[in-house]
């Protein structure tokens, strides 16, 4: 990728804290995410994973701490100090957000082609045939038959909707992807296919990914680095295989040992 400077992280979190009244969302989370790296945040539900993801993606302002993004023009920039137009522009060009429920991330009332084309049109594409061709290419990339281009997402299966959501997000060539439990709610074989696809796309497009999941298998398959959260705090962090094979913190040990074996 053109802009990736390996001397500087893409995303930097410094003691990110979010307090809801007297509840803790997440507490003092710090890390650096480097270009092309996949970071998985794992933990039980209620451990602050999704709160952290919202803070990282600019959807929510942290109560304390800062999130910096390495924007093209300005270098490492504090998201809190970034003007809203710039933040929204980032969100539709450099970033992508894949929701757990594809219905949250898709526009259900327009066709698959329009869903994929939306980000292109938001960034100024005004040539119908070009938009359509690009949409077709992306349908192929996410293994959806191109004859479904003009069909509504309503008519797609859950797995196809999730793949369509991924295509819609990646069409502008983002550098950083946030994923919130991407295979949640899909049956196991569809999950496996989706994970394979995501792994391929991440490798092909050299994406940096922050992925939130409660599923250690997802983390094992996709992530290069792992962060284990419990009650809003990071209890352990390290290379994915290292944490999964030799967990140090008591909670990580519990988490790893509670995976059902077949």
């Amino acid at each position: 990728m053109l802009h990736d400077d390996l001397s500087c992280p893409l995303l930097r979190a410094r003691s990110v804290t979010k307090i809801y009244g007297d509840h803790v969302g997440c507490l003092g989370v710090s890390f650096d995410l480097w270009p092309g790296e996949v970071l998985a945040i794992v933990g039980e539900s209620g451990s602050g994973k999704s709160t952290l993801l919202s803070c990282l993606s600019g959807a929510m302002e942290p109560s304390e701490g800062e999130v910096f993004y390495n924007a093209d023009a300005t270098g490492l920039t504090d998201l809190a100090g970034m003007p809203e137009p710039q933040l929204r522009a980032l969100a539709r060009t450099d970033w992508a957000f894949v929701h757990q429920n594809p219905r949250d991330g898709l526009r259900m009332s327009v066709s698959a082609g329009a869903n994929i084309g939306e980000r292109l049109m938001a960034n100024g594409a005004r040539h119908y045939s070009n938009i359509r061709t690009t949409a077709e290419t992306w349908l192929e990339k996410v293994e959806i038959d191109t004859s479904r281009l003009d069909d509504l997402p309503e008519t797609f299966s859950g797995g196809m909707q999730q793949r369509l959501q991924i295509a819609r997000n990646l069409v502008t060539g983002p550098r950083l992807v946030f994923m919130d439990e991407p295979p949640g709610g899909l049956d196991v074989s569809v999950q496996a296919r989706l994970l394979d696809l995501v792994r391929k796309l991440v490798a092909d497009h050299e994406l940096a990914v922050v992925i939130v999941t409660h599923d250690l298998a997802v983390a094992r398959l996709l992530a290069s680095r792992l962060m284990v959260m419990q009650a809003g705090r990071v209890v352990e962090t390290g290379l994915a295989d290292q944490v999964l094979d030799d967990p140090q913190a008591p909670y990580s040990q519990l988490l790893v040992s509670s995976v059902l074996q077949v």
Binding site: E84, P85, V110, S111, A122
Partner: peptide
């Protein structure tokens, strides 16, 4: 309102795209 303020009008073309597609 925010879309008007920031001139984010891509969505309008989504509607026209959908027209042509259908």
């Amino acid at each position: 309102r925010k879309m008007h303020a920031l001139e984010e009008y891509g969505l309008m073309h989504v509607k026209l795209y959908e027209d042509i597609a259908r």
